[in-house]
Amino acid sequence: MKAEREGRLDPLEREILNLIQQDFPLDPRPFRALAEAAGCTENEALARVKALRERGIIRRLGGVFDSQKLGFAGTLVALQAAPEKLAQIAARVSALEGVTHNYQRDHAFNLWFTLTCPTPEELAKTLATIEGWPGVEKLRSLPALRLFKIGVNFQF
């Protein structure tokens, strides 16, 4: 199944993905710039990107912003939920607007999520609220102290 999925990427698609996962050209004709780098025509580059988007291999072609520079405060939360309350707590967490990633993980801290709020005060308040929910046994806020790398550059 995995091999099949990978197999569906042809060499041009791999080249295009390698290029645009890093940087989409800031150019009035970005697909022309992309085509020059990938060795195809402008229309072909656009058609391939559209097809990759439609197949769901590209989730989105857009911007990723630095929340801190926009004045927002964010953190990664490690939460230990009572097992019987986990699903309910997870649903309440997911319903929060500032939560973008929320996963159950195989650890005593069984729920991990990212939370971003417009101000540090709101972040602290939201964390205190969550800590008070029934079934929340522990909550540890793990804000980034230093960023070494963000994003992925896969070689296709």
């Binding site: 990427l9 993905l17 291999i57």
Partner: peptide, 25 residues
């Protein structure tokens, strides 16, 4: 957009991939 990028406000303009579907499952 060039300024946003230079100042780091825009970390990246590009494709966000659905890794699972690229074989990195």
């Amino acid at each position: 957009l060039g300024e946003f990028k230079a100042q780091g406000v825009l970390r990246r303009l590009g494709a966000v991939l659905y890794h699972y579907r690229t074989g990195y499952s």
